[in-house]
Design a protein around this nucleic acid. Structure first.
Lengths: 325, 325
DNA sequence: TTGAAAGCGTTACCAT
DNA sequence: ATGGTAACGCTTTCAA
């Protein structure tokens, strides 16, 4: 005898249906003692018949606070973000938190939409945003916000520091005898990336030229094409560093198809890199640490405790040697 | 002048700090008109100073219902589940729903824990469960539940139907001349899998033997090892069908390393299959449809509308030809 | 064992 | 422009 929920069914409806008071219903539903077995059963039946579901809001208002955070990710299908998300989920679970996940599909519009509705749902927000600080501030209204991979004077942020890791990568290539090392950068940005800057700095320490740089689309195909182009322009290149692992995997494919000998080092250190053959050497980010750190910082902000600062918020990339270089 | 939140700061605290009434605070914070600019500013300042954040519960109690669902996934890092999760997120977003994601880490214990806390947080639950129906029922207490890939008389469920797809795969291999076709099944289950049954049925239609079956661990390495073993025992095998794409990718690696010629067909049709070389041919599941269907069914259950039933809840696997077979 | 009343924090309606 | 009062749905005291 389920019925349509045109109007919300409340505890009062159940109470009158069962011929008891609200409190008795509450007791029956929450397995409190001090209630007649028979009464309890009658209430339970009534509740089931009516399709009654307690309002989580009303309940939350009265019971000890559960905390939940919003996790904002540009694209859950991108393995890097998947790893960060999984890590954040794990860290949140350890605290007994709930995580509401939003995939903004790399779109500013979706980001805005998310921000507008998120405020009423969560106690803090963690993740990736491309919106301006002003816009973020306007919608989050003092709610704790932890940005990942983006500096901000206004909000807490997890900083990604890759200079040392990229230097190790270049050192590694150089000591293997490589001198002409190219790079596949990410195309979709106006400026060259941080990673490009780190690459140039590392090359400079060896007095090596950094003219062999091409941009690639953010996909396996993009990496594959970009490497063809790069080798076309700079046939003497014997090794490449790439913006990320996806692009590197594409590059690896080109290497294989061309039957060429070429060292490849990616960036991110995804588990995905172990799926390809040869397994991908990469400048690795500890995605679990990123997720855990973001959640930890949110916890401190929420508790009004001393927030992490400075180096505690930095995630250092390190060279992860596998097979491709 | 932020202060520790030993006690929750309410709208009343802000009101008295700003020397106005609750309602005025509410107006100021929610950008309602009809308020003096100066008063508004004073309220906003007070709120910021106190670190005031509205209770989402109190707000939810009063404002038009937002609906949110729980999405329960055994392992977000498994690309198959990632795809389903992304699809569910997208479908939920289209409805303006919030999705609370739980990764149960393939553990019954975590599943139980999730179930216990989920009831107070969401309006419906969608996802993968290994718990008994009785246990599920006990904790969900009449909340709509949509199971994926698991039949249940008690709950709605999305059924995965792969017989036809696997038959296509076997047909494809046979018409390419293969007669000795092996299978790498998943090891962690007591019984052979559905997929194994589908494989045997398909082979039977060609009068082919199904003795060349080994089990593999659910990983790339597992697939690689299992294929070595299989070829060891059945050197005449010229093609293999695998429990899923991960295992297939491992098999592909062995094929490459052994320098053998062997057709491989996986199951799932993951995007991941385009990353390897050769790209993986697979019996593909439409993960977007799975996610969308689960959410759609949850919507109907929530609205008290006629739920989907029968074939509408079935997702058919289809052969996705790429390069590995 | 059961019920009446109070209160959780917020917004809406109606005065002022 | 601002404040008082009621209401949202539930749980928790406290009496009966």
């Amino acid at each position: 005898m389920t019925q349509k929920l045109t109007q919300r069914i409340t505890i009062n409806d159940v109470a009158s249906a069962a011929g008891v008071s609200r409190q008795t219903v509450s007791r029956a539903l929450n397995d409190k003692g001090e209630i007649d077995r028979e009464t309890k059963q009658r209430v339970l039946d009534a509740a089931r018949d009516l399709g009654y579901r307690p309002s989580r809001f009303a309940r939350g208002l009265v019971r000890p606070d559960t905390t939940s955070i919003g996790l904002v990710i540009p694209d859950l299908l991108n393995p890097f973000f998947t790893e960060v998300a999984a890590a954040a989920l794990e860290a949140a679970r350890a605290r007994g938190w709930h995580v509401v996940v939003y995939d903004t599909a790399d779109s500013l519009e979706e980001e805005r939409g998310t921000l507008q509705v998120i405020g009423t749902q969560v106690d803090a927000v963690v993740g990736y945003f491309s919106l301006s600080e002003a816009e973020l501030d306007e919608h989050t209204r003092g709610m704790p916000v932890v940005l990942i991979g983006r500096q901000s004077p206004r909000f807490s942020s997890i900083r990604i520091e890759g200079a040392a890791g990229v230097r190790s990568a270049v050192d590694h290539l150089v000591s293997a005898g490589h001198r002409r090392i190219g790079m596949l950068d990410y195309a979709n940005r106006a400026d060259p990336s941080d990673r490009h800057a780190w690459f140039c700095a590392a090359m400079a320490t060896h007095g090596l030229a950094t003219d062999a740089v091409t941009t690639a689309a953010q996909s396996v195909a993009g990496g594959a094409e970009a490497l063809v182009e790069l080798l076309d322009r700079h046939p003497d290149v014997t090794a490449v560093f790439t913006f990320n692992d996806i692009i590197a995997i594409g590059a690896l494919r080109t290497v294989r198809r061309l039957g060429r000998e070429l060292a490849v080092i990616g960036f991110d250190g995804l588990q995905l890199g172990t799926v390809v053959d040869p397994e991908l050497t990469s400048v690795a980010l500890d995605t679990r640490r990123i997720g855990a750190l973001a959640v930890e910082q949110a916890a401190r902000l929420l508790a009004g405790a001393e927030p992490l600062a400075g180096d505690d918020l930095v995630v250092q990339a390190v060279l992860l040697l596998r097979e491709s270089a």
